[in-house]
Design a binder for these strands. Structure first.
Length: 625
DNA sequence: CCACCAAATG
């Protein structure tokens, strides 16, 4: 309830709608809730520049404000354009006979002084904190140090630090930046050398300090030596123009990094890069926009891809149109992809062969057989584009997925170019989806002539047998595979949590992360069984093994582990984004649907060929994949 | 009765 109001507030940036929201909050009676009221104060003081008086009036009418409420007002004002105005509620609070200031009060008030850079009120606050015995408090002490540094009094900052009994990392970091702020680069180096513990903020502090002092060479060195880099590190480098030379000389490297993100599915990192692109003015380079569209689609966020496409400040090229069509296709938005294609035709951009590959792909992944056929002939007849082998492959996929296996087979036989292994493999995949043994055997024979050592083909065929319960044939395939020392590609999945990527491989040696994932997974499966009536679907298992063992084998699939780990680690409400190297198996697909319903989370899985976005028990692929 | 608010890097 409170969160709803807060998010509503964050969307309005002027006083009038804020007043309306306030009136509504009053109706619900939540206006006396300290949390809601605090957010309202903060919003008026920071987000809206001319609403300070309104914040003060709100506070004035608040019944019996306690120390917490006073602190909130002091904090709000300290962050406003006129930080020193927070001294009024500070004095008011001290005059109240029933209330007394606490450590928060002093921390906020000192922060206000630091933001205003006026030394004299700072000194007064310091002596008052001393009288109340709060100057020894670690937060207050640390704020004192940075306050003195902001006001240019490095000697006092140093003295406060020397008198502290147990400085922690944050205190050390405050001293570090204090040295830089007073222009003492050598002092900062000393502090950095003496620090008993360092965290990312310490490194970022060094980086920013050097950059501000104009020591660009040293800053670059810090950047390369850092054990870990986050958003702040990167943006320090960009804002300080430390990487700009490299990027400006060839924006190729920027698109290169973006495409690496796309391949790895590193969404959070891609977002950071997007921020840089905007800040550094690279949005005016068409190819960078296209790379962003591609990155967002491949990282599972087609909505962001759409947004980049819609807001492009430069002309959309054929690559831009094709990228967004391919992105929509990957996410199962076939109709939208076709609609965009029509818009593209109207805008006068002429499609090329790659555009049609994306379109046909969109059709085959959304079951739009008629539309796909129409586009295929339009490509040949209207645009005069001679279909390449990839186009034929898409058509085989289109018919095959739609269970029209005979039609697909005939199509291959009538093709004017001779089919390659990929074409036959596409059909074999379709046979495995629809469980057609005869066709699968026929196709596998062709493949055996062309590409006998491909383990994936054996696995596909054996899956067809396994589904039909023909375990003899399954084990014979397995024997051939071991005899030819063919290895099944191990399945892996990864999930990004707080910009760190965790990988899971089926059957790997247990470690801390996998232990945790397994434990969470056991708990999840139990809940799915009791609350959603889940029963494991064992058809996806390759081998003819005991039922119980099979269940065990299915339960170890890497995407399940990644999902379990995500549920355990990510805060509620966050989307789980998983990347997998192979296709999702049927059982995992079901489990993801159930998890999304029971745990009320959105899960986006990128598999080998497309995206599955699970929400409320349904998948965006509508079980067509 | 408790907890919601707090210090350092861009």
């Amino acid at each position: 309830m409170e969160e709803a109001w807060v998010s509503l507030l964050s969307k309005c940036s002027s006083l009038k709608p804020t007043k309306q929201i306030h009136a509504q909050i009053c109706k619900t009676g939540l206006h006396t809730d300290p949390l809601v009221f605090g957010k309202l104060l903060l919003h008026c003081a920071i987000t809206i520049s001319d609403a300070l008086h309104y914040a003060l009036r709100l506070f004035h009418h608040f019944p019996n404000p306690d120390t917490f409420m006073h602190n909130t007002l002091i904090r709000s004002l300290s962050l406003s354009q006129t930080p020193l105005s927070s001294l009024h509620p500070f004095i008011q609070l001290r005059r109240q006979p029933t209330l007394s200031p606490d450590s928060f009060t002093f921390a906020f008030a000192l922060k206000a002084v630091a933001n205003s850079r006026h030394l004299r009120p700072g000194i007064q606050l310091h002596s008052q904190a001393f009288r109340h015995g709060f100057d020894a408090h670690i937060f207050v002490g640390t704020t004192l140090i940075s306050m003195y540094a902001e006001c240019g009094d490095s000697g006092s900052a140093r003295r406060v630090f020397d008198e502290m009994s147990e400085p922690n990392v944050v205190t050390w970091n405050a001293v570090l930046t204090a040295a830089f702020r007073c222009g003492d680069v050598e002092g900062a180096q000393d502090v950095f050398g003496c620090m008993p513990v360092r965290n990312l903020t310490s490194w970022n502090g060094m980086l920013a300090g050097y950059a501000k002092a104009g020591e660009l060479g040293l800053a670059r060195r810090v950047f390369y030596e850092m054990p870990l880099r986050d958003e702040v590190s990167w943006s320090t480098m960009i804002v300080g123009e430390l990487l700009r030379e490299e990027i400006r000389t060839n924006e190729v490297s920027l698109t290169g990094v973006l495409s690496a993100c796309a391949q790895a599915g590193a969404f959070e990192f891609g977002k950071i890069l997007h921020g840089f692109v905007e800040k550094a003015g690279f949005l005016y380079v068409g190819s960078v926009n296209n790379a962003l569209i591609d990155t967002y689609s491949k990282c599972g966020n087609v909505a962001m891809a759409r947004l980049v496409f819609q807001n492009m400040p430069v002309a959309r090229s054929i690559v831009s149109w094709t990228s967004i069509i391919a992105g929509l296709a990957m996410h199962g938005c076939g109709e939208e992809a076709i609609q965009l294609f029509h818009e593209m035709e109207e805008s006068g951009v002429r499609p090329d062969g790659i555009t049609f590959i994306s379109l046909l792909y969109a059709c085959s992944h959304s079951g739009l057989v008629e539309e796909g056929c129409g586009l295929f002939s339009k490509m040949k007849n209207l645009y005069g584009i001679e279909p390449a082998i990839e186009h034929y492959g898409c058509m085989v996929d289109l018919y095959g997925r739609a269970a029209r296996l005979q039609k697909a087979y005939e199509f291959i036989c009538e093709m004017p170019v001779s089919p390659n292994a990929i074409i036959w493999r596409t059909l074999l995949g379709a046979c495995s989806i629809h469980g057609n043994i005869e066709m699968a055997e026929l196709v596998k024979a062709r493949l055996a002539e062309m590409d006998p050592d491909n383990s994936g083909d054996h696995v596909l065929l054996s899956n067809v047998y396994a589904v039909a319960g023909k375990w003899k044939d399954v084990s014979s395939i397995r024997r051939t595979m071991t005899e030819h020392s063919m290895k099944k590609t191990p399945g892996w999945s990864m999930i990004e949590i707080d910009k760190v990527i965790y990988g899971f491989v089926a059957g790997e040696k247990p470690n801390e992360v996998t232990e945790e994932a397994h434990e969470k997974l056991r708990e999840i499966m139990l809940r799915l069984r009791t609350e959603a009536g889940y029963a494991p679907q064992l058809r996806s298992v390759l081998h003819d093994i005991e039922e119980e063992e099979k269940e065990d084998s299915v339960s170890k699939h890497s995407e399940k582990l990644a999902a379990a780990f995500g549920i355990a680690k990510l805060p509620k409400g966050r989307i789980l984004r998983i990347v997998k190297n192979l296709r999702v198996c049927g059982d995992c697909h079901t489990v993801m649907k159930l998890i999304s319903k029971v745990y009320q989370v959105e899960i986006i899985v990128r598999d080998r060929s497309r995206f599955h976005s699970f929400k409320d028990g349904f998948c965006s692929c509508r079980d067509y994949w």
